[in-house]
Amino acid sequence: MTRHTEITPTEAADRLAIRELVEAYAYCADRRDAAGQMALFTADTHFVVFMDAKDPTPSQELHSRAALAPVFDALNQYDATMHFVGQSTITALSADRAEGVAYTLAHHLTVKDGQRKLMIATLRYGDSFAKTDGAWLFSERKLYVDWIEERTL
């Protein structure tokens, strides 16, 4: 962890903007705003999913903002979701690039024949960010699923 005795207003603004970007991703997911969620990524983004965080081989790998549409559209299979963003740490920051890690508890509710089921995924994201035209965007997002819990409610 970096020790900050003093940071510039620009660095503070960048750190806040990146945190808001991470939170906007969850907000858009829960509102099924796929277009808004896709807009948080660079056009040439790299999105990688590891359904088993211990397996170094990705389950899915996408190479553009446009390729994200079916991933975000898949959330429509749930009656409701709630993505709770826990800690979000910026591990490196320059004027136009940054790296970070974010932790999320993703709650997915389904209701079928009056039966409610909840799937909770514990997620970690390894993020790379790029500042483009003054706005921070995801340039790479690696999603690691640490474990999944399923419950009948």
Rank of each mutant, 00 (worst) to 15 (best):
R19Q: 14
G114E: 06
S94G: 04
M51T: 11
Q37M: 06
Y25R: 05
G126R: 10
F84L: 08
M119S: 12
R15G: 12
A102D: 12
D133E: 15
F138S: 07
L118Y: 07
V48A: 01
L153W: 11
L68R: 09
C28P: 13
M82K: 06
A24W: 04
P58V: 06
I120Q: 15
R116F: 07
S94Y: 10
L21Y: 13
L75G: 08
F129W: 04
M119A: 05
R65Y: 01
A106Y: 05
S128V: 04
L40S: 08
R15A: 01
A24T: 07
T110Y: 00
V48G: 10
H4P: 09
A102G: 15
F72P: 02
A80N: 08
W147T: 11
H108T: 01
I7V: 13
F138L: 01
E11G: 01
A95K: 03
D96H: 11
L75I: 04
S64Q: 06
L123H: 05
P56F: 05
F72S: 05
I120S: 03
R97S: 13
S139C: 10
A98C: 07
V48F: 08
Y103P: 06
M51W: 14
R116G: 07
L21V: 10
G100S: 03
R124M: 08
V111I: 07
F50C: 03
P70R: 09
F138M: 02
I7S: 02
E99K: 06
H83N: 08
A26C: 14
V22R: 04
